[in-house]
Amino acid sequence: MPRKSVQVQAEQTATAVPRTIQIIRSEDTSAINVQEFCARNKIGESSYFYLKAIGHAPKSTRVGRRVIIFPQDEAAWRQSIQDNPLPTSLRRAAEAITKREAA
């Protein structure tokens, strides 16, 4: 007899737990990794790590072993390089991107 009551209890518990998980995603939260950031902004990965070392890189977030950059952080970085110019070697690439987006 106790065996049936345990089985009934397990069935009731299983039906109480929702079976589907809904994931809500928004388009404005699509993050990019460092390689995609470098390709989008026409800079090399070594330049990104140089910028990070001198404190001029965009804010990045570590998720596990991945490093991701959110679009709002990339936009803030672009605004900051207009206010605080980059080293000469990177300034030309940044100016070209700004002109391309303005057009």
Rank of each mutant, 00 (worst) to 15 (best):
Q7W: 07
Q12A: 15
R40V: 12
I21S: 01
S60V: 08
F49M: 10
T88R: 10
Q9K: 12
E36N: 13
P85C: 01
E95R: 09
D28H: 13
D73V: 01
E11D: 13
A94L: 02
I32Q: 10
L90E: 01
Y50H: 13
I54F: 04
Q72R: 06
F70E: 03
N84C: 04
R91N: 12
F49Y: 15
G44P: 13
S46N: 15
G44T: 15
P87Y: 00
S26C: 07
S89M: 04
T98V: 12
E101S: 13
E11P: 04
L90G: 02
S26G: 07
R78E: 10
R40L: 15
I68H: 06
C38T: 09
F70K: 09
R92W: 11
A53Q: 07
H56N: 06
Y50N: 14
I54C: 04
P71M: 03
S26H: 12
I43M: 14
S89V: 07
S89C: 05
R100T: 14
I32Y: 07
K59H: 08
R100M: 12
I69E: 01
E45T: 15
F49I: 14
T29R: 15
R78F: 08
P85V: 03
Q7K: 13
N41I: 03
E45Q: 14
F49P: 09
R3L: 13
T13M: 11
K4H: 12
W77K: 03
M1Q: 10
A16V: 06
Q72N: 09
S80F: 08
E74C: 01
A94W: 00
K52V: 03
R100S: 12
T88S: 07
S60C: 06
H56T: 08
I24W: 05
A103K: 06
V67P: 00
S80P: 07
P87K: 05
S47I: 10
A16W: 02
I54R: 04
R40D: 14
R62C: 04
A53P: 02
K59C: 00
I97A: 07
T20L: 10
T61R: 07
F37L: 09
R62P: 04
I43L: 05
R19P: 05
A76W: 00
E101R: 12
F70G: 00
Q72H: 08
W77I: 05
T15A: 15
R25P: 02
T98L: 11
I21C: 01
I97V: 15
A93V: 02
A39N: 15
T15C: 15
G64F: 02
Q35F: 12
P71N: 03
V8H: 09
N84R: 04
H56Y: 03
R25E: 03
K4N: 12
E36C: 08
R3A: 14
S46A: 14
G44I: 10
Q79M: 07
T20E: 10
G55S: 00
F70T: 09
P18Q: 12
I69S: 03
D28I: 13
A103N: 11
I32P: 05
S30E: 14
Q72V: 06
F70W: 06
D83C: 08
R65A: 14
A102N: 14
V63E: 04
Y48W: 09
A76G: 00
D73L: 00
S89H: 05
P2C: 11
N41M: 06
K52F: 08
T20Y: 06
I69Q: 02
Y50P: 10
E95W: 01
T13Q: 11
W77L: 02
Q9G: 08
